[in-house]
């Protein structure tokens, strides 16, 4: 499914004149990752919409709702686990590697693993 079709399926995605808008760059990457994993056949878009919708609903009922794309991201991490792409343990390990890479990188140089 193309990005355009994916957008049509999820009416709640924030947009302006029909196109999605992102408050911060990572939000666009989160959006692109979900669309891309669907294109690659990792999950169907209806599976995505169901999982995301359930998280959105649960989050809205909770006391302090997260932002739209924070919930999108939570769904992405869960889908990664469900389909065996990346486990919580792997993410925790990799997260530590990125933090260590940042700590040894002087400001002004790109952070690389």
């Amino acid at each position: 499914m193309s990005a355009r079709e994916a957008l049509a399926e999820i009416a709640s995605i924030p947009r302006d004149c029909g196109e999605p808008v992102f408050a911060e760059p990572w939000e666009a990457r989160a959006f692109a990752l979900a669309v891309h994993l669907n294109e690659r056949g990792v999950f169907t878009w209806s599976e995505w919409a169901d999982a995301f919708g359930a998280n959105l609903k649960a989050n809205t009922q909770a006391g302090e709702p997260g932002s739209y794309y924070e919930i999108w991201w939570q769904t992405l991490e869960e889908m990664g686990e469900r389909h065996g792409l990346a486990s919580a343990v792997e993410r925790s390990h990799r997260s530590g590697e990125w933090q260590a890479a940042a700590a040894r990188t002087p400001h002004g140089k790109p952070i690389e693993l």
Partner: peptide, 21 residues
Amino acid sequence: DHDHSHLDGMELKVRTLESLL
């Protein structure tokens, strides 16, 4: 006010999962 770089919050989470995938 610091001499090295920082990654935090969502930026760190996105880099983490994206690099694994």
